[in-house]
Amino acid sequence: MSDVTFLSVTRSEWIKFRSVRSTVLGVIIFVVLTVGLSVLITTLIHAHWNQMGALDRLTFDPVSTSLGGISLAQFAVGVTGSLFITTEYSSGGIRSTLTAVPQRRRVVAAKLAILSGVMIVLSEIVCFVAFLIGQAVFSGMIPASTDTLSNSSDLRAVILGGVYLTMLAALGFALGLILRQSPATISTFTGLVLLVPLIIFFLPTSIQDTLTRYEPSALGRAMTATTPPDLTFGPWIATGVLALYVAVVLAVGTELFARRDA
């Protein structure tokens, strides 16, 4: 007989998630960035369409362009995921949490359920809104823009945009389980998404071309494109590779969380 069930711990984590400013603010910033940048990017392209070269116009992907806000929003979701666990350590709240729920793997599962549940719902909504904004801005003026959600590659790009953001939130959380401190976790997350592409950029071209497709932000670009850009995986393989990364980091994080002194 146990009163500490997955459901009860999840309810507890939900109270925690919505009762501090850091998580609520992180979520608001991510929504505003994704939608706001979609408006900004699409209207700028709309205004400069006539100055764009023929090749640019030909390869223009209106769907991934309208989802351009993801490139910044990914940091907001990563930070939100990180802080959901690291603030427990910085505040000492982890001691309360674990004396109420000594089953540590259950704590991880419940936190992950709340984080990814909130993130998948919000990021899907946000990606669809961003897509619709793009459609509204581009409609009638861009010949190539015949995109609708009934087009399967468009629908896929929009849905995977939300999946990408959710997986990055989980990645931030998993790094937080390992590193436990907010600054270390956030800088590692930022390094993975922002610096790894830069480092790869400085490698010899042959290696660069092989490695680029494996770095997280390239996986994100592959997932949100209607037709995969050069040197990236197809959208489904990219999703699988990213899921594998997240799963590995989560597994290591959970194991350390369960074994280490709190």
């Binding site: 427990e88 505040s91 709240g93 309360s96």
Partner: peptide, 26 residues
């Protein structure tokens, strides 16, 4: 248990801190 160090998130209200703990044990 009352531990010697802080054990609650500074940004959370006392009531919500206790609510979250209570919920975990039904």
């Amino acid at each position: 248990a009352l531990l010697d160090a802080k054990a609650a998130h500074p940004g959370r209200s006392a009531r919500n801190h206790l609510r979250a703990l209570a919920a975990s044990n039904q």
